[in-house]
Design a protein around this nucleic acid. Structure first.
Lengths: 227, 227
DNA sequence: TTAGTTAGTGTATATACTACACTAATAAGT
DNA sequence: ACTTATTAGTGTAGTATATACACTAACTAA
């Protein structure tokens, strides 16, 4: 028992949010550098205590808004972490959420009193995190891979219109494996989740590619790949 | 804000456990009749506050032990429920767990000060529950169906040795649909999760059936059916 | 011996997944 | 104008998996 555990009779509830985005063919996660002992200088996921007049879903959305200035993004409850010693400040149980934000939106990151140096880190190069956040992040990445196979949530990481090559490389970089181009196209088009934008095309210095949109920009279940 | 919310500055954490068993070709859930206002006389899932010196997993196991006297059963975190008004006694966030217990073990149910009439209810005939427990139960049933298709957890609901017909009807009653006998056997045997016990057989007044065991009695992922 | 009941088995068809290589369209450079 | 470099876009044959479907075998009780 430490000071805070003595101060509060019961465990208190916090939420931590694992915020993912994809840029330049890499998966990034938002981390903040801690200002408080005993984790001074370490990085941690953004999080905070839940106010007594807000639901846990609202609390997660609030934290996302406070740190990134973004609203109406994909946000889903991941898992609740409740080891006794997970927080040296006291008995805190944390409900972890994961969020997907598209890189094409301009995101202005904010620091606060306890954190500075808010920033994006490539998921394959994150330092050891404070609390049990390394475990949280691993769980979130695992879950993201599963969801990518089950559902259409990929649209949360892409601009409104995209090429099939862009979609495929999103899958490849998150799943960490190469996919066959013809089979990927055949599969994704047969699922009836995309529709071509028609006129528009995108090309750089070579053959231009057709642009597609997701026909429904609401999360729903589609079996895209196995696991 | 009510009295308890004023009493505790922060939200407190509870856990509720959805305990399933299968008996006589029906799925049952454990419910308790409440003694406290304002839910007096209504049924609720077993649950309680988390002690500050135990993890949430431990708390769920403790509640399961207190109510059913059982240890070492399948217990898994389901979801955390955190609506502000879910508990009229105050701001309580509840981490729901679901448990699978085999009916063949003798289970002695215990009531306590707040609850009486601990008992099993067929899932398709539960009354309206206290708090948000109706929603919790629905979520748990949905999850149970998914897990049945993904993994070998069915063994938690069966005696150590069972016939293929018993296994099939377990799947049928939980999934709520009839399955083809030959295809079911072909599939489940090809998955290499069962092994015949050899000598033993079980018969009533007709052709005796061969008995099988699960080769691994640890939860692991096996794709058994689609969704 | 017969009737009743549950256990146990195979095959043909359709669907889905996998592996694999070339042509098409464009911009840039000569 | 032509060549080069680069990315987009397409089809098929083979394999594996899922589905639909009906009869025989083993036993008990009457």
């Amino acid at each position: 028992m430490n000071t805070v555990q003595q101060k509060y009779k019961y465990a208190v509830i916090a939420t931590d949010v694992i915020i993912f985005t994809v840029r330049k063919r890499k998966l990034y996660v938002l981390l903040m550098k801690m200002q408080k002992k005993p984790f001074f200088g370490m990085y941690a996921l953004p999080g905070g205590l839940i106010n007594s007049d807000e639901s846990i879903d609202d609390a997660a959305a609030r934290i996302l808004l406070e740190k990134t200035g973004m609203e109406n993004v994909y946000l889903e409850q991941l898992k609740t972490f409740g080891q006794v010693d997970r927080d040296p400040f006291g008995r805190v149980v944390s409900v972890a959420y994961f969020a997907l934000v598209p890189a094409y939106r301009f995101i202005k990151l904010k620091a606060d009193v306890n954190y500075e140096n808010v920033g994006w880190f490539p998921v394959d190069a994150v330092p050891t995190l404070a609390y049990d956040h390394t475990e949280m992040l691993a769980t979130a990445v695992e879950q993201l891979k599963k969801r990518l196979g089950y559902s259409n949530i990929a649209y949360n990481l892409l601009p409104p219109a995209f090429t099939l090559t862009e979609l495929q490389s999103l899958y490849e970089l998150i799943l960490g494996e190469a996919l066959d181009k013809r089979n990927f196209r055949k599969k994704i088009l047969s699922l009836d989740v995309l529709k071509p934008t028609g006129k528009e095309q995108r090309g750089n210095a070579n053959r231009p590619a057709a642009l597609y949109r997701f026909s429904k920009r609401k999360p729903h279940m589609v079996r895209i790949f196995d696991h």
